[in-house]
Design a protein around this nucleic acid. Structure first.
Lengths: 124, 124, 124, 124
DNA sequence: GTGGTCTAGACCACG
DNA sequence: GTGGTCTAGACCACA
């Protein structure tokens, strides 16, 4: 269900968190779906349960998932997500566009690029 | 000329590096301009010279600046910049666009956003 | 496992970096092998941990190794190595050959020399 | 007659020294030719005379040039050159070849490369 | 325990 | 005075 990349310089908990975040945002995981238990995922990935715990905790604080004591962790509905997340992404986007402008890449170039790349994302 | 934010979770050397990087690719600093000396900038930012040194060293290894021992650090010409930098930014861009798609933000939306915000960069 | 030469005019971090670089490209260290920890190597070489840290950091930025915070440093696979490294070696090679030509040493001479010396490397 | 590259990370005196060394080895400067005076070269390159002085001094100690007090500096005959220079180049050559072997570049590859590149050097 | 960052302070090479 | 290297020692994040 999820994989970790030992070459990735990011901490493990962040990789896991990101993978779930993406799956939730993209709709690959629909609301109220149960996530694998901490212990289960930890053993299947062969990493420390604390690492999973931390990833889940952060996802919860950002509103991506909710936890029910003794039951497990579940995907939250989209409108529970902290709006700051979206704003943060947009801010990053603006910054990135301005950096790319310095390399001579125009909004038009980027638009073409998006039209090419998003078709893949659309049918997933 | 440059400021650091002690709340920012990123390391100091990375903040400094980023600030200069942006100024260089935006053209705010033109080639062969002398950067502030290591000691000078360190004392003006009230941080350790080693931290500045490190930021400069990394900028140099990425091709943004060149250093002359005993003379100072100077901004390099645009075409000396490691092409991997641009590729890295584009990769980030793709990922960001796909995340934003999950929030219902389309390439069209982003194109409009870019057209609005990039006018500042256009008069470079 | 590794030695440093205090007579060598090159900086310590560069000597260390070079030793590992050679061991990695020669295949003496295979991918995913764990390197000695920063502290361990520092104490065994009787030099400061920061110096090792720096050597490792540069090896990482060139793609020779990857690091996992809290785990250690590991050798990367060959194809993650920055291609500029190879180009740099070839450029040095050309320059050296042209210098040697001035001493009356022809490509033929060098070819014979290579055939003699490279047999060791051949059984990799 | 000679140029310096301010982007080159090597110290100026080393660049100058290398340029002359190459011209002497290649035969572009024949024995007993008078080199430009320290003051002359310094002003034409717009750098400190001490820097030129140092370059000349090192060339002299390696046997590439000889100086006559009050007369100037002159190219030495080829057999005055410190034999350690040639040995040093050959040692570097061996090391380089072994590094390149790690990238899958064989002596044959290098021989072909030399045959291509040395023709240029031959007719200069 | 491991890597990563930062500080304080020293010494050297360069120009 | 400038960059470059190194040391000693501290504190934090990660697993």
């Amino acid at each position: 269900m999820i994989e970790i990349n030992h070459r990735d310089p990011r901490p493990l908990y962040e990789q896991i968190q990101d993978k779930f975040r993406k799956m939730i945002i993209s709709g690959a995981l629909s609301p109220d779906t149960k996530l694998p238990s901490v212990r289960e995922l930890a053993s299947s990935l062969a990493i420390n349960p604390n690492t999973i715990q931390r990833a889940y905790k952060e996802l919860e604080s950002q509103g991506f998932i909710y936890s029910m004591a003794g039951k497990g962790n579940f995907v939250a509905s989209r409108d529970e997500v902290d709006p700051a997340i979206k704003d943060g992404l947009l801010a990053k986007f603006d910054e990135l566009v301005s950096d790319l402008a310095g390399f001579g890449i125009t909004p038009q170039d980027l638009y073409v690029r998006m039209k090419g790349g998003v078709e893949d994302a659309a049918n997933e």
